[in-house]
Computed example of a mutant assay.
Amino acid sequence: MRNVKTFVPQCLFAWALFAHGAAQAVPSYHVTVNTAAYTGQALMDFTFLANAGVTPATAVLNHFVGAFGPEFDRSTGVTGLVPGQVALGNQGGGSYFTQWVSLGGLFSFDVQFDGDYASTVNVDASQFNATLYSSGFGSYIGGAGSFAAFELLPLSNGSPGQVLVSSPNGMGTVSAIPEPSGLFLSGLAVLGLVRRHKRRRVAASRHAPSTGHDI
């Protein structure tokens, strides 16, 4: 009975990890940009561009950290607000979202891409860019180009879709967020170690010398 009581919660825990992984297995990335070398107000622009025939995809931004100010502008169809969650689509030529920021510190956010682009044959790719501009879009902050760029490549010629990541102006850092499926495998490994440890304890107790006390 004791083994059953222990094993059932462990199975439920492993299944919860698996279910979470199955529900969340879409590409996610953490983006940081350090503006310590700059001062004043600037515009942080997020743009999701694509041709008219591209496979639908959505970019979801959240976990905003940094001196974000009020919203500057957005295109039709963009939903959400900073510091909560903002979603942009690539349909109808794309969409954009622009936010005022105060330079001088570190900014970060997460971006997650969803849609069937990775499993749908197409010749059109999507491009998501995060860029810093001076007030009025007069010039780039930190060099020409975006500090984070993502190219969503669809399924083509038998090659599965993928996301190509770069920092064109070298100012940003982009790191992939491990998918929960990896967490599931790690959970199974931990459960395996726990079970092995318990078996060793049982075996050791069976071979332990008797105390000599009889009741």
Rank of each mutant, 00 (worst) to 15 (best):
R2V: 14
V4R: 11
F7T: 15
F7I: 14
F7L: 15
V8C: 11
C11Y: 12
W15F: 14
G21Y: 04
A23P: 00
Q24F: 12
V26C: 05
S28L: 12
Y29T: 08
H30M: 11
T35G: 03
T39P: 00
L43A: 08
T47M: 05
F64G: 01
V65P: 00
V65S: 13
G66I: 01
G69S: 04
E71C: 01
S75R: 03
T76V: 06
G80W: 04
L81Y: 10
Q85V: 11
G89D: 15
G92I: 12
G93A: 07
S95F: 07
Y96G: 09
T98I: 10
Q99K: 01
W100K: 03
S102F: 06
L106P: 02
L106M: 12
S108C: 02
S108G: 10
D110F: 02
V111N: 05
F113D: 05
D114R: 14
V121D: 14
N122M: 04
V123H: 12
D124P: 00
A125H: 14
S126C: 05
Q127V: 14
Q127C: 08
F128R: 10
N129A: 13
N129M: 13
T131K: 08
L132Q: 04
Y133E: 03
S134D: 11
S134T: 14
F137R: 14
G143K: 10
A144Y: 09
F147C: 05
F150L: 07
E151C: 01
L152E: 07
S156M: 06
G161N: 09
G161D: 10
V163L: 05
M171E: 08
M171K: 12
M171F: 06
M171I: 04
S175G: 09
S175R: 13
A176V: 12
A176M: 08
I177A: 01
I177S: 03
E179S: 13
E179G: 12
S181K: 10
S181N: 10
G182C: 00
G182Y: 11
L183K: 07
F184I: 02
L188W: 09
A189V: 13
G192P: 08
L193F: 11
V194R: 09
K198P: 00
R199W: 15
R201S: 10
A203E: 15
A204G: 02
A204F: 06
A204T: 08
R206C: 10
A208P: 02
H213S: 10
D214P: 02
I215S: 12
